[in-house]
Amino acid sequence: RDIKVGHFGAPGKAFDQGVQVFIDKLDELSNGEMTATDYPGGQLGNESQEIASLRGGLQEVFITSSTNMIRFSPKFQLIDLPFLFDNDAEADKVLLGPIGDDILGGLDGTGLHGLTFWDNGFRDLSNSQHPITQLSDFEGLDFRVIGEPIFVDTFKALGANPVPLPFPEIYSALETGTVDGQDNPLLTVRDVNFFEVQDYLTDSKHAYSAMVVLVGQPFWNQLSDAQKAIVQQAAEEAGQAQRQIMRKAVSGAKAFLAGKGGMEVDSFDAAARKAIRKAVQPVIDGVINDDNRDLYQQIQQTLSDMRQPS
């Protein structure tokens, strides 16, 4: 039967191109036995509906933000910790290794099965008031955030006023000044035209936005081991290609936003970054508990191994 692949990327844009690679890989690896169709832009419904469809066996594959998996497994919270990863290589190392597998395993028994992580880039800051280059610049700014406690707490810790809003309301809220700023990957800032209503961009990399490739348990159970291996391999290989596509698009978007997009692009210097990290440390401490401390330490270990090569 046809595999329905749902996601929220806009048709034809970078994320959707990655999905196309996945579909082609499925076809190629299965010698044409597995066919899949791409349903971009939430054509199969909103987040909760596509999840329900996966668990109920109406839909086969759904690619969504790892943040949305927190309610199924708290392990996913660790990925969203502020300033966890410094660059793409660090994120890939952790998420594509045993630690990533451990996190995905948290979905067992929920009716969902996680295949692998894909990339959605780092979240950066934009606002309409003034450049943000240090901690004190956050003071008094109204920031739209995702309605997850960790994002709300992070922006509170930075001194800003977090305002959780649903995604479709961001543009008009920015435009009308209901909020001053938002944080999203650069591609979103370009593709959803936030640059029209925002003047200042900060290359803050304050959180990494991971995507998770999900299959529904009813569908997964129907597959033979050989078929499972094909789907798994296709997701992983497409993930590699998808990372290249996304990262190339991100640098294109950055050039566009600074040029034609008319945004002033700033970044944190080492001292500012240190002060900001310190300010959000209580948020991290609040998330770490006995259940995830072990996993968190493994992540830190992996990262410090990378940062100080012996």
Partner: peptide, 14 residues
């Protein structure tokens, strides 16, 4: 009802 059975045990995040 099928979804009731699937969702037994899951809670809203907030």
């Amino acid at each position: 009802w099928a979804q009731v059975e699937i969702n037994l045990g899951s809670d809203y995040p907030l």
